[in-house]
Design a protein around this nucleic acid. Structure first.
Lengths: 142, 142
DNA sequence: TTCATTTACTTTCATAGTGAAAGGAAATCG
DNA sequence: CGATTTCCTTTCACTATGAAAGTAAATGAA
């Protein structure tokens, strides 16, 4: 296999697919001056290199009733609570994303819920592991 | 057009596509007991209803050298800085996502950068609009 | 230099996925 | 009761795809 590095064409293809992963290789090929098959080969390489992890949707949670979008910074109350907290976080589908962070708090997470009641219930459960700070997203402006 | 509501099958299809948007309609159809074409029609409806916004990639920014992933909460220093800050944020490709928030600060944003130097430079610019709090993502654990 | 190898591409071809159209079954409604 | 609507299936034509074969340029060794 070739060089581990990506050239400009690879990045262009990547950007193009991030924008719309259904674009055909042929169409992308016209942009980057390659045949569709050559684009296909590069996409496969991006996959092999681990640059591309998978294909997914851009979608609208509030259209299925998940109107609350919030960010929660968690401050663990003890050193032993970490693994328990992690398995809790992983088990909850309303917790979309969790990061171990340095700076403010120990963990940061993004949650999506159907309303204030659900948020209240979730935060109550978080309290078992530590304190938190909450930011509600009013609008995603970018 | 039909009812505005989505049934369980629609949600199953949605979940399936979020997991892997390249799955064929036929394969999804086998899961939800429909023909591929019926799945296609429902996917089109999800599009029309605005539930599905587009198709994109799950990918790995650190593989292209963007190794720093950070969350920045911004506290505006004046009421007039908002629009300027927004156009600044929108113009910077390293600022991936921006939300207006209630709770901690005025805005929350996610940034991806090539290293500490770039982060330092970006934060310097943010200081023109207000103060900030920074959290570095050590690892995305979910 | 010359020949062999590698890399990355194009073209060709067989296969699979797609949307459009036509037709059918069940539910709704006057 | 028949008409309409909704949602589905089947069929069909078209397009996108990956595999294979062939080509051209670059690299490297004798």
């Amino acid at each position: 296999m070739a060089n581990q590095t990506l050239d400009d064409t690879d990045l262009q293809i990547l950007q193009c697919l991030i924008d719309n992963s259904l674009r055909s290789h042929k169409e992308i090929g016209q942009l980057v001056h390659l045949s569709g098959q050559a684009v296909g080969a590069r996409v496969r390489r991006l996959h092999d290199l681990g640059v591309i992890d998978g294909y997914t949707l851009r979608w609208n949670p509030d259209k299925i009733g998940q109107t609350v979008h919030a960010f929660v910074t968690v401050f663990m109350k003890s050193n032993t609570a970490h693994t328990a907290f992690l398995s809790f976080a992983r088990s909850r589908p309303e917790i979309i994303e969790v990061h171990r962070v340095s700076g403010e708090g120990c963990y940061w997470m993004r949650v999506r819920l159907s309303g204030g009641g659900a948020l209240n219930a979730l935060l109550d459960e978080v309290l078992a592991y530590g304190n938190y700070k909450l930011s509600l997203s009013i609008e995603m402006v970018k």
